[in-house]
Write a protein that binds this DNA or RNA. Structure first.
Length: 926
RNA sequence: GCUGAAGUGGUGGAACUGGUAGACACGCAGGACUUAAAAUCCUGUUCGCCCUAAAGCGAGUGCGGGUUCGAUUCCCGCCUUCAGUACCA
């Protein structure tokens, strides 16, 4: 029988499931290896051909590691809380759990058809109460912890309480809110319970804070940033306003430095590391105090304390807390109107017109800490309330924004060093010697900074300070389909439930909308009170809660007592290889590192970093096809379509056409006519009897008719072809458009491979004869190539190498067991079905190829005695001469120069120089 | 603007440490088989020059320079595309 991929693939997928071929134990003699994929959100649209790219690569890697003798953990699950299911629920009233279940089942069917070696007995779903039990539990640990700067790690809050009881607030160095109180142990012990809780909340790593959210009154809901476009809601286009709400937050900033340092220790792609670094945004500078008449010191953050003598004004963010107090009576109207104006501007507009200078004078002055001069205080929206202290010392000579502001409002611009050129724009260089700078005149940058810091500190006017751009993460969503927060409120203060009461199950509601009074959907739940009297927290956890620790649950998915057992985590440790998209660079991957560090601080997990090696698979874009409708004289569409090459002779209108009825850019006219009634009588202007379509690379989406489903590919060519073709498309990390053109080549390759094992009538036919050196050479070339390729994640090049190998063996008419059996093993990570089938036919026990031993490369088989030297003259290859590889450099040179064709080039002269690289090349320089 | 990645035939791409540029595959062209088509197989296919073929010559990895016996690979400057980020003091 010819290669019957459908039958083969069905047979082995059934076998693997029935025999739990890929089930893995938490104990083994073998070394462990953990290969993880970023788990998907199961959307209603199902998988398209771009989704499995990373899964195929990781599956090849996992299978390869098994052959290399590792105990491989390779699980899969679903990130199943999320907005689309909730949106659908709002529209249809269907419970999101039902939609989610349906989508997961569909995903599972699609994934199973591709032949992955996942251990499905370890599947996790973040929306499953058995799973979110532990998301809630981790939240509780965060609530019950504080960050001790003295030990530089998170510690249980009980230790902080004990310190307060014994020593008061003295000697505590914590990451906390700014408004912490100072107290003695006696005072602490005299605090009421509520006062104590209120104070502790300022230290907890999960804490309540007032923060602003995107509130859309018309939709009655809170929107995520990416649901707001130009100040309007993405859906419906309703106005969105900033609204202050009490929100759960996570003190991720406490980990900023460790998150930054950890980047040095992990093997991630450079762009991704860079993105995280920028996101954390560390800057080293100083805090400086400027005194004001109103007796309110303005603290500014600067990275250029050396420019302090160039300060000619102070700028506050319009939201700065002292703006109103600093505003003088005669300036009040101007300031208030300016604040009003900025409020109306959405964040996007503020970003868009970065060129327009605007601001207003408060009428107040501050005193320069070193010169004692009076400096005007302005407000302007180019200063952001959220960064640094929300106030800057403006140095127009050194900062372009300050420069433009000074020019616009006619404020002084003071040059601060002798090499500064400030005629056209600010000059931020540090190269000169300071002028106009009193104490530091004549100093260089590296002398001035430590000098000034010391001076300011001595005067109690400032100090060195490291600032991070990263903000604490908001940890609440006013939504239904997420993990309930295991908290109830007593007298307005949050308290945790008992751990034994977990999980707190997501209650039923009548609608998935906010209540009339604007509370989140959980406000609709009937009789939902803690101990029948206390209100629960009504917001749910954000999408990243469940994904910030899921790789641990895979290690020990059935555990009812703990999120992961000590023994499981001490066996698997951390993820050795993680494959996923770069869109999670600053979300999931940052939060996961944060939670991991926290869990490590409390001793639950052993590793500081959860993902040792990470690979980003590139995005698969769509490749759209177009047909060209001919327009008549009035520009109206006709029912005639002109082929791509002739379209310039007509007035046309390009239309997307479904790529699934186009092969190699040739339209299948019959299928097209049948696709819609109005095309039934369509006419075509053809080229050589064919209709050629135009094409363009776009996002893969339904509306562009360029979505290709893996199901269709598998139906036509099989999963092994799909797997190999996805790899063959190009380097894993590169983004590329999906183009089904070319898949035939991979399919033909697998047929040729099949034919090696069969005679002309497709009877299984294997020879037991001894292999020839040429056959062994072909085999050992591929053994070596594939292991090198997989080790550097270059899967596309091994597919080519397999093709070369099969072409060679076909030419050699090789059907010897000695060669083909090992070849099956080497190919099996890429094409598991066909190799498993042939493995069985070769007489091996069914279903065992996955645990076979990868053949050992023997360099002996690749040793050559002769080499065809390319002979180049002045760097240009002119001819080839075959010589023995035993020949020494001098012998090669001698032999080459004797050659007749070489003599022709020499033309009687002797060469200036002859370079011989043994076994590589000869270059003659004339 | 800043940061990062990348520019190689008609197309996807290969060339891993500076050593035969275009492997492998698609497409295309020609041929075999066939009444014909599909399928399959064979041959050719970077561009230009010489009527054609063989042989040969010249150019060639975004552009311009450099280092080197030799550069897709290293260095300098520029252009283009994609991605991320953005008044961060």
């Amino acid at each position: 029988m010819d290669y019957q991929f459908k039958e083969i693939e069905r047979k082995w997928q059934k076998f693997w499931a029935a025999n739990q071929t890929y089930k893995v134990n938490n104990t083994s003699e073998k070394p462990k290896y953990y290969v993880l994929d970023m788990f998907p959100y199961p959307s209603g649209a199902g998988l398209h051909v771009g989704h499995p790219l990373g899964y195929i690569a990781s599956d090849i890697y996992a299978r390869y590691k098994r052959l290399k003798g590792f105990n491989v953990l390779h699980p899969m699950g679903f990130d199943s809380f999320g907005l689309p299911a909730e949106q659908y629920a709002i529209q249809t009233g269907q419970h999101p759990a039902i939609t989610t279940e349906e989508n997961i089942n569909r995903y599972r069917v699609q994934l199973d058809k591709i032949g992955f070696s996942f251990d499905w007995s370890r599947e996790v779903r973040t929306s499953d109460p058995d799973y979110y039990h532990w998301s809630q539990w981790i939240f509780m640990q965060l609530f019950n912890a504080w960050y001790n700067l003295a030990s530089d790690k998170a510690e249980p809050i009980d230790q902080l309480i004990q310190h307060f009881e014994e020593k008061g607030s003295v000697g505590i160095y914590a990451v906390s809110d700014e408004d912490i109180r100072e107290f003695s142990p006696e005072e602490w012990n005299d605090f009421t319970e509520e006062e104590k809780q209120r104070e502790l909340l300022k230290y907890r790593l999960a804490y309540l804070r007032e923060s602003s959210v995107n509130w859309c009154a018309a939709l009655g809901t809170v929107l995520a940033n990416d649901e707001v476009i130009g100040g309007l809601s993405e859906r419906g286009g309703y106005p969105v306003e900033q609204k202050k709400m009490m929100q759960w937050s996570m003190r991720i900033v406490a980990y900023a430095e460790r998150l930054l340092q950890g980047l040095e220790t992990i093997d991630w792609p450079d762009p991704l590391v860079e993105m995280q670094r920028n996101w954390i945004g560390k800057s080293i500078g100083a805090l400086v105090n400027f005194t004001t008449e109103a007796n309110k010191d303005i603290e500014v953050f600067t990275t250029r304390v050396d420019t302090i003598y160039g300060v000619s004004f102070i700028v506050l963010a319009p939201e700065h807390e002292w703006v109103s107090e600093l505003t003088q009576v005669e300036q009040k109207a101007a300031i208030e109107s300016y604040i009003e104006k900025t409020k109306k501007k959405s964040e996007l507009e503020r970003m868009a017109d970065t060129k327009a200078v605007s601001g207003a004078f408060t009428g107040s002055y501050a005193t320069h800490p070193l010169t004692g001069e009076s400096i005007p205080i302005w407000i302007a929206d180019y200063v952001l309330a959220g960064y640094g202290t929300g106030a800057v010392m403006a140095v127009p000579s050194g900062d372009q924004r300050d420069y433009l502001f000074a020019k616009h409002f006619d404020l002084p611009i003071i040059p601060i060093h002798d090499q500064q050129n400030i005629e056209q724009e600010a000059d931020p260089s540090k190269d000169g010697k300071y002028i106009n700078s009193d104490l530091i005149n004549g100093m260089t940058y590296s002398e001035a900074v430590p000098f000034l810091l010391e001076k300011l500190e001595e005067m109690h006017k400032g100090k060195g300070k490291v600032n991070y751009r990263m903000r604490d993460a908001i940890f609440g969503r006013q939504r239904y389909w997420g993990e309930p927060v295991p908290v109830y409120f007593k007298n307005g203060l949050p308290y945790l439930m008992k751990e034994s009461e977990l999980p707190l199950i997501l209650p039923e509601v009548d609608q998935y909308l906010p209540t009339e009074s604007g509370e989140p959907p959980l406000g609709r739940a009937k009789n939902w009170k803690y101990q029948d009297q206390y209100d629960y927290e009504l917001s749910t956890m954000p999408g990243w809660a469940g994904s910030s620790w899921y790789w641990y649950r895979y290690m020990d998915v059935q555990n009812k007592e703990q999120f992961v057992s000590k023994s499981a985590v001490n066996y698997w440790h951390a993820v050795d290889l993680y494959i996923g998209g770069s869109e999670h660079a600053t979300g999931h991957l940052l939060y996961s590192r944060f939670w991991n560090k926290f869990l490590k601080d409390l001793g639950y997990v052993p590793e500081e970093e959860p993902f040792k090696k990470l690979i980003n698979q590139g995005m698969i874009q769509g490749r759209s096809n177009f047909i060209y409708r001919v327009l008549d004289e009035e520009g109206k569409g006709t029912n005639t379509f002109v082929s791509y090459g002739l379209k310039d002779n007509y007035k046309t209108n390009a239309l997307h056409v479904d790529v699934n009825i186009v092969i190699n850019d040739i339209l299948n006219i019959e299928k097209f006519k049948a696709s819609r009634p109005e095309y039934k009588d369509a006419e075509f202007i053809l080229e050589n009897g064919k209709y050629h379509c135009g094409h363009e690379v776009e996002k893969m989406s339904k509306s562009k008719f360029n979505v290709v489903s893996p199901d269709d590919i598998i139906e036509a060519y099989g999963a092994d072809t799909l797997r190999m073709y996805e790899m063959f498309l190009g380097p894993l990390e590169q983004s590329k458009p999906w183009n089904t053109n070319g898949i035939e080549g991979v399919f033909k390759f697998l047929r040729k491979f099949w034919k090696l094992f069969h005679d002309a009538d497709f009877n299984f036919n294997i020879s037991e004869d001894k292999a020839t050196p040429a056959e062994l050479k072909a085999l050992h070339k591929i053994i070596k190539k594939v292991q090198e390729d997989i080790d550097r994640f270059s899967f596309n090049t091994s597919v080519s190498a397999f093709m070369i190998c099969i072409n060679e063996l076909t030419d050699l008419k090789c059907n010897k067991r000695e060669i083909l059996q090992d070849l099956c093993i080497v190919l099996s990570p890429y094409a598991p079905h066909i190799t498993e089938d042939l493995w069985e036919k070769l007489g091996n026990q069914a279903g065992t190829i996955s645990y076979a031993t990868y053949p050992i490369f023997n360099p002996q088989h690749l040793v050559e005695s002769e080499f065809v030297y390319p002979i180049s003259v002045n760097g240009k290859v002119r001819m080839k001469i075959q010589l023995s590889l035993d020949m020494e450099v001098s012998e090669v040179e001698e032999e080459v120069l004797k050659n007749k064709d070489v003599q022709k080039y020499l033309d009687g002269k002797s060469p200036k120089k002859v370079i011989v690289v043994k076994g590589r090349i000869v270059n003659i320089v004339l």
